[in-house]
Nucleic acid binder design. Structure first.
Lengths: 217, 217
DNA sequence: CGGATAACGCACTATCTGGTTACTTCCCGG
DNA sequence: CCGGGAAGTAACCAGATAGTGCGTTATCCG
């Protein structure tokens, strides 16, 4: 909508730019909600970090909860889109499976905001995600993707039949997500630094092994 | 300390009973913290639900955070003690492993407060659990327990060698914990009721299978 | 160029929230 | 049976917090 005239350099600092302001608010909100949860996040802090006026935040997003909802939806859409870019159908089943486990792990590792946001949303019983139409659509593609790998593997005789793609999806997510979301209590309980580089590499290898043992014929 | 005189019936409603009041506050706090998280929980609500005066809460526990800390520690001690009662060393390795997976799942299912508390604590980077000395001690026993099962299994040739008991522990927890903590977003994303009786049974069976495939020779 | 529209900002408030002050009531040991 | 300490209570407070009313300024289109 509000675009620079083509002749002007794009980097010229616009004094007024609704899209840019919205984007800054969303980014600051993602950070704040991920750090402190929905209840712990402070609207004033979000506005400040976004270098935007709080009034703008309410103008564009309505309320703290609606802002959270949009931040959460965006986070889900981001991971679902990244998954689609993997082009797993081009790989043979074992490689595809390994790549998916690796991707999931690395995505969680690179995006700790995502796992924290998901936890917050589940504390609130999924009431915000439920309002998103897009998330369901994109999630279906994920299940189809895994289903396809599984089918191809069974056809080639490398995977055993009868593995539920939803349970497999849940398990791939679980073994990475749990380790990383509970990194703090986990490090205390098991008395070792779970976020140590070597520990992370070891975990990824363990996870790939776990999933392959689960699906192999 | 404050005990009824032996001649009086223990159930006689004492008008003043420090231990009972503390217990009521802890119970109400467990509920409130599990429901709304540390930031979302309300001290007034805890006092009200405990049928205690807020001043008592501060008198016995010092602050909201210290109360949270004690609630969290109690929750961990409870699960660790329940695990010790399983007497897994009396079972053969495969049965012991299956029993542990089953127990973990059923404990999480019966104690949704536990998983919610753990999530809240990890949002706060483990800063409260770190202060507990007891939790580390009891956790060591858990690792030893799994280690023992694993060793016995290897000696009998039913389990493969080289499985790290910490990673195994993490995985047993993960596949149950993740499913249950993300029951809300999971049900939305996969468009099926993850908390349906049949779905729960299916998941338990899947989890047992996953772990056995992981450790079997 | 000029005025409508949208971006932006200040200052305010009603309410909530963790924590406290100052008090009363009960119980038990000597 | 009585005095002191512990259990219990009501009212209160200061700071924080989500949300707004209203005025100002930049931008863009006719």
């Amino acid at each position: 909508m509000t675009k620079d005239t083509p002749s002007e350099p794009a980097l010229a600092p616009r004094t007024r730019d609704a899209e840019a302001t919205k984007a800054r608010i969303l980014k600051a909100a993602l950070n704040e909600f991920a750090r402190y949860g929905l209840a712990g996040a402070r609207v004033d802090t979000i506005a400040e970090k976004a270098k935007a006026n709080k009034r703008m935040l309410y103008h564009y997003f309505g309320s703290k909860e609606e802002l959270f909802q949009i931040v959460l939806e965006n986070a889900y859409l981001d991971i679902r889109q990244a998954e689609q870019k993997l082009r797993l159908h081009e790989l043979d089943p074992v490689e595809a499976m390994e790549r998916l486990v690796r991707f999931t792990w690395e995505y969680y590792l690179k995006h700790p905001e995502f796992i924290r946001l998901v936890n917050s949303e589940n504390l609130h019983r999924g009431q915000h995600l439920r309002k998103s139409k897009l998330v369901s659509i994109f999630s279906r593609k994920l299940v189809e993707m895994v289903s396809d790998i599984l089918d191809r593997g069974v056809a080639q005789g490398v995977f055993r039949p009868g593995v539920d793609p939803v349970h497999l999806n849940l398990t791939i997510a679980a073994i990475g997500f749990y380790y990383l979301t509970n990194r703090y209590t986990g490090s205390i309980i098991f008395e070792r630094d779970l976020m140590d580089k070597a520990a992370l590499d070891e975990r990824l290898a363990f996870n790939i092994d776990t999933i392959l043992r689960l699906v192999r014929a």
